[in-house]
Amino acid sequence: MSLNEEQKQTMPPLDAEFRALRAATATTAPQLAPGLLWWRAQLRRRNEALRQIEQPLLAAELLALVLVLGSGVGLVVVAARSGAPWLLAAQRSIVAPWVALFQTPWTMPLAAAALLTLLGAAIALLACDKTE
């Protein structure tokens, strides 16, 4: 059944009124500059292209960070196994005071609070970055 046949069964034909209303409304259309719309679209495409370029760069930065941290940890482990004197000296001068500090009862809650604050700040920073 065609649209017109169905229409006749349910309501009086309004095609002409609809078309007249369409024509009357079309005369009130605002005069936008098509060139401006075209450039806005160009700008949007360019921003999207730049965003797509930046995504792999961020992934590469994260990978580089993981590799650097991994290498550092690996170096320390190798040095510890071979009994390097600089590591023993570092343990005495840097690690030992921290171990002593963490043996006191109030240090752990303070460290946990500091860690939570740091994590909160990192989350807030990431959220701000996303909304920009």
Binding site: T25, A29, P30, L32, P34
Partner: peptide, 17 residues
């Protein structure tokens, strides 16, 4: 831009309505 200007001229009024 020129092709779009033509398309815009033909389609903007019905779309506006």
């Amino acid at each position: 831009a020129e092709a779009f200007a033509g398309f815009y001229a033909r389609s903007s009024r019905p779309l506006w309505a």
